[in-house]
């Protein structure tokens, strides 16, 4: 079946089987391989993308279900060569090692701050409950999220007011 959607601001269209999961639509049909598959039970969050601005697990959605939607993958987060504040914070704080969980973790964290621009450490930890990392022990990931919440406060406040959520 024909499945159209907007991915990172570009219109995409592909003829795929109905059973195609969003993550494989992105990886195989669109050719954006930054979204990773780390499990088969919606547990690890490596496949997290933004669907109409909110974090979702793209391994647990049929591509057919989100025809016409606006999807952001890790490839669409940076502004040209300028890293997004969350990507920058992960780099500053050494919030990644092997990098496999990173796209999902960064997007989950982005969604988290869009909902709650000034979270406590506990809220960050709870908010990332759906993303597993085996390398970092989470310490520097949490630090990165708190770091950008603090240093880029205006950016996140603007994001939050845009999505109609207030802190």
């Amino acid at each position: 079946m024909q499945v159209d959607m907007t991915v990172n601001g570009q219109d995409r269209s592909a003829d795929v089987e109905a059973r195609t999961l969003l993550v494989y639509y992105l990886r195989d049909a669109v050719g954006l391989t930054g979204t990773n598959v780390g499990c088969d039970t919606s547990s690890c969050g490596a496949c997290t993308v933004l669907l109409n601005g909110e974090s979702v697990k793209s391994c647990t959605i049929l591509a057919a279900q989100v025809r016409g939607a606006d999807v952001t993958t890790i490839e669409g987060l940076a502004d040209g060569t300028a890293l997004h504040p969350m990507q920058q914070a992960f780099m500053e704080c050494h919030g990644l090692q092997c990098g496999y969980c990173t796209p999902g973790m960064v997007l989950a964290a982005t969604s988290l701050l869009a909902d709650n621009p000034r979270p406590t450490e506990a809220e960050v930890r709870e908010g990332l409950e759906g993303n597993l990392c085996r390398c970092t022990g989470y310490h520097n990931i949490v630090k990165a999220v708190l770091h950008t919440a603090e240093h880029d406060a205006a950016f996140w406040q603007a994001r939050a007011s845009k999505s109609g959520v207030t802190a």
Binding site: S42, S55, V56, T60, I61, L112
Partner: peptide, 9 residues
């Protein structure tokens, strides 16, 4: 329920 991603969907 679940985690934030699950709750978004």
């Amino acid at each position: 329920v679940g985690d934030p991603q699950v709750r978004h969907r």
